[in-house]
Amino acid sequence: MSTTATNNKQVSRRRAFSKRDKITLGFFVGIPTALHLALVWIPAIATIGLSFTYWTGIQYSNIRWAGLGNYKNIFFSTPAFYDALQNNVIWLLWFFLIASPLGVLLAYQIDRQIRGHKFYQSAYYMPVVLSLAVTGIIWNFMLRPDGFINGLLGRDIDNAVSFFGNYDINIYVIMVIASWRHIGYIMLLYLAGLKAIDSSLREAAAIDGATEWETFRKIIFPTMKPVNIIIVVITMIESLRAFDIVYIIYGTSAGLPILGILVFQNIAGEGASMKGAAYAVILFVLSIGPIIAYLAQQFKEDVK
């Protein structure tokens, strides 16, 4: 925005603004800032504050100072926290090692205009336009004991294949569902980046005798750095904030504990306690920490 004038020009610039400009600018800057503060920062800071209290969420007069009580409870007395952490880590690894690379691969193939690429592109992209909740509903219909797949297999509910109730595999069932959407998302982001690459780069590489893999590794991938950063950040955020699909399938029961569910379970309903706020703060720190570290390192390299 034009307010980011450099110091030496500031004086002259400022004079250039008419009164009307100032009002207009004030609106443009002020309203989003106010909304941002009111809807993001104040609730976030309030959540952090409340995580150090005991409160059922109803009357302000009932707020009691808890110190680290909620955190101690989570870390030392709540086995579900570690189950959830484990599932979120699996989620993160799966997305990083399987889903995101697959999205990149698909984008690359489609960009190479393999036969039927338009069909593949729309097929893979379609799940992305569906909200995560809808994704959950669709797959719930498919996989539950009286669902489509079990119907197809001719199984009744008493001997149905257990997709959601077998706790040894259900995280992977959910991973397949989540990937169904995530792959298309990553593919689209990457595809947009690939389209912007100057084709002469590829031609030059081809003339120099580079193989397809060498071209990708040494030319395309480094050129795509801005997109890569976005994908890393998105993958991290998507895996940590995971909630919708699991909530649609399991509700708040412990079928598949993940941090997002624990936040909700402890902050909503009659069982509300600020333990939920503490979970939210933990989730926040887990999400923001690695992202800041990663971005800081990336930008430092850029400056060099």
Binding site: I42, P43, A46, G49, W65
Partner: peptide, 13 residues
């Protein structure tokens, strides 16, 4: 300690 958090300011929320 009850209201001493300054969170009371969040009233608007």
């Amino acid at each position: 300690a009850a209201g001493a958090l300054g969170i009371a300011a969040v009233g608007g929320l």
